[in-house]
Simulated scan of single mutants.
Amino acid sequence: MAAAILKHLAGRRIYVESAGVRPGEPDPFAIAVMEEMGIDMSRHKPVSVGDLHDLSFDLIVTLAPEAQHKALELAHGYAIDVEYWPTPDPTLASGSREQILDAYRDVRDRLFARIKQRFPLTGAGGV
């Protein structure tokens, strides 16, 4: 969700990639809550850090402790900044479909606010 939000806000002004510690499957709850704000993630294919072909990043933002450790290993010896934004894991939510969606909305909204604060973008593509 974070990468999709930044791509939405920045357009082509910032190169953004998304990768996890392990490859996964598209998350229908993430797709649903992002669609609520007009961001289409239906074609997103989760990949692992090992699947990335270009590692010429200036910044890696991680959302989970395991990802933070992996990013620090990856960035070792390179001029790459690594930031850790502790984020609740909405996949751990339980209850009704609406309760699970609320957990995803909470994460989406937190990420949106954090991204707008960290990457203040104005003009075309910025919200």
Rank of each mutant, 00 (worst) to 15 (best):
M37I: 14
A3V: 06
G24R: 09
G123Y: 15
G125M: 15
G20K: 07
K116V: 13
G11R: 05
V49N: 05
A79L: 12
R13D: 13
M34D: 01
G11D: 13
E83Q: 14
K7L: 14
L63Q: 01
R43H: 10
I100G: 05
A113C: 07
D54E: 07
V33S: 00
Y84K: 10
S56D: 12
D89L: 06
P65R: 02
G123V: 15
P46G: 09
F29K: 05
F29T: 04
P23A: 13
R105M: 01
M41I: 04
Q68T: 08
F57V: 08
L92Y: 02
G50W: 06
F29Y: 15
M1T: 14
A30F: 02
P88L: 04
R12T: 14
V21Y: 11
I100C: 03
L121H: 15
V33A: 00
E25M: 08
S96M: 07
R97D: 07
F57C: 09
V47D: 02
G95P: 05
G95T: 06
A103E: 00
T87Y: 04
A113K: 11
D102P: 00
I5W: 08
A64P: 00
P28V: 07
R97V: 07
A4M: 12
W85N: 05
A30V: 02
D106F: 06
M37W: 04
E98T: 06
L59I: 11
G20F: 10
L55W: 09
A2N: 07
M37V: 14
M34G: 01
V82L: 08
I115M: 13
R43S: 13
G24N: 10
T122D: 15
Y15I: 03
G77H: 02
M41P: 03
A19L: 04
I14P: 00
R43T: 12
V61R: 01
F29N: 11
P46I: 11
P46D: 11
P23Q: 12
E25C: 03
R114I: 07
P46S: 11
A32R: 08
R114H: 12
A71Y: 00
P120N: 14
E36S: 05
M41C: 09
K70R: 08
M1P: 10
K116P: 07
A67Y: 00
G125L: 15
V16I: 12
I14T: 09
S94K: 12
A64M: 03
I80M: 10
Q68V: 02
L111T: 06
A113F: 04
F29I: 06
D106N: 04
L74N: 02
I60E: 01
V61M: 03
I5S: 09
L63R: 01
K116A: 13
S96E: 08
F119P: 15
F29A: 10
E36F: 06
